[in-house]
Design a protein around this nucleic acid. Structure first.
Lengths: 243, 243
DNA sequence: CACTGGGTTTGACCATGGTCAATACCGCGC
DNA sequence: GCGCGGTATTGACCATGGTCAAACCCAGTG
């Protein structure tokens, strides 16, 4: 088991982020964490619009967000594009590349962000001698799958407003996990990104924000969103967060 | 590497299905395959409507479809339900349960089907001594993630017709992989399942089928679909199958 | 400080596809 | 064979949300 001091030490370097997503409590000892940590390399910070990896590029590493945020998306041969997800600190990216040597989507920074790199070859090496880490890796990948399924459920909700409500609530949940104020969201992505993510038109999203504001549900100011009535938000979502 | 005879031998028992989805060429030797095979247990066949596992149930095993087909779906607390996928022979199910001890969705047979069970405890045991299998497991899970992303891309297509076209084409592709005739689909799921899967209304799907039929694209007879003009189908999808 | 430009909001209009309802079809058991 | 029940098709209607277009706001720049 890990003592507080050691975790705090790790927190300061890149490994921490990895640990955050390799969610504790895990079966990893302090030594294990240090081994894991040794596979993590810091990278130059990304500026808004910079690409971390591009769809089709050959796969080499997983990435963990340290600060800032990124989006992942696939683009079809004709301009059509689908945003797959938004990634906050602690999130792991590039998992889809594990199947077949190539990243199946692109990742782009939404604001100035830093990530660290887990070169897969090294990760494999380390985890070969650490069954706990191996299992943890599997859990993380499977977790990404479940996240994708949640996205799907959101897209299935026929009502536009429910989709957006769902989106906002999940953002708030993620903020809470990061021990940020879950009432006060700072959305780094554009309306158009949100719309695409939800399968809606950009204008619809904009309209819905103003509607929710005039319903007293939110206070919207550009990219800053304050949740005023969480209860009403939950009502809109309909159904609990069971999945 | 595996010789033909050995593969054929395995084909006869449950392991084959697993191998099919643990896609070859893999780094597994014949011995490895037999070890893998030893973890697979046949189960009593399921009848149409039978449940393989239920959302929320505690996770214990992965399942490989041997014959027939199943659907997976999540249901929210109020009647709303989302179909996540349809599973044909060779497909692995239950992967979402790896994250947190519980299946995040339910699985139900669409017709009389047989599956085999890979108890996870045993799988872990075997793969502990087989790095190749371990890596392969990771690839499979990641592959499931990518499949989910493809579903998402389909849901993102704004046009109902494009969604259905996409769906049909992917079904044909899967048929081809199973070396069935990819022109002649036997859809085991109901219109309502398809509609839900695509985020459409059941009536819309029905209408689209008849439209496509009168456009000379398909021949539709209830659950049997014959693809007459694959080229036109591809046109409808727009964009290539790049992802 | 004005100017420019991207992202955003708002409005008006209309098409796509959802809803409700009736009918048709097929398989199955009696 | 007949009737029944579930599934699928078809029709009519209308609401939601997409599209086009204009106005707006703020940030960054000269």
């Amino acid at each position: 088991m890990t003592s507080h001091v050691d975790l705090d030490e790790l927190r300061r370097n890149c490994g921490y982020s990895a640990i955050h997503d390799f969610r504790l409590p895990v079966g990893l000892s302090v030594g294990d964490l240090q081994a894991l940590n040794s596979t993590a390399h810091d990278m130059l910070p990304l500026d808004r619009g910079d690409t971390l990896f591009r769809q089709g590029e050959s796969f080499g590493a997983l990435y963990v967000v340290r600060s800032g945020s990124l989006k992942t998306f696939v683009d079809g041969s004709e301009g059509d594009l689908q945003v797959l997800g938004f990634h906050l600190p602690g999130d792991i990216m590039g998992i889809g590349g594990l199947t077949n040597e190539h990243y199946p989507c692109s990742a782009e920074a939404l604001e100035r962000s830093s990530v660290c790199e887990l070169r897969y070859a090294q990760l494999q090496e380390v985890s070969a001698s650490l069954p706990a880490l191996h299992h943890q890796l599997i859990r993380v990948i499977s977790g990404a799958l479940v996240t994708e399924q949640r996205h799907l459920v959101m897209m299935g909700k026929q009502q536009a407003q429910r989709r957006l409500a769902f989106f906002i609530r999940r953002m708030a949940d993620r903020y809470e996990r990061l021990s940020r104020d879950p009432q006060e969201l700072k959305l780094s992505m554009s309306r158009s990104d949100i719309a695409n993510y939800l399968g809606l038109a950009l204008e619809t999203v904009s309209r819905l924000f103003t509607r929710m504001e005039s319903d007293g549900l939110l206070a919207v100011n550009r990219k800053s969103i304050r949740i005023l009535r969480r209860d009403l938000l939950n009502d809109l979502c309909g159904g609990e967060i069971d999945i």
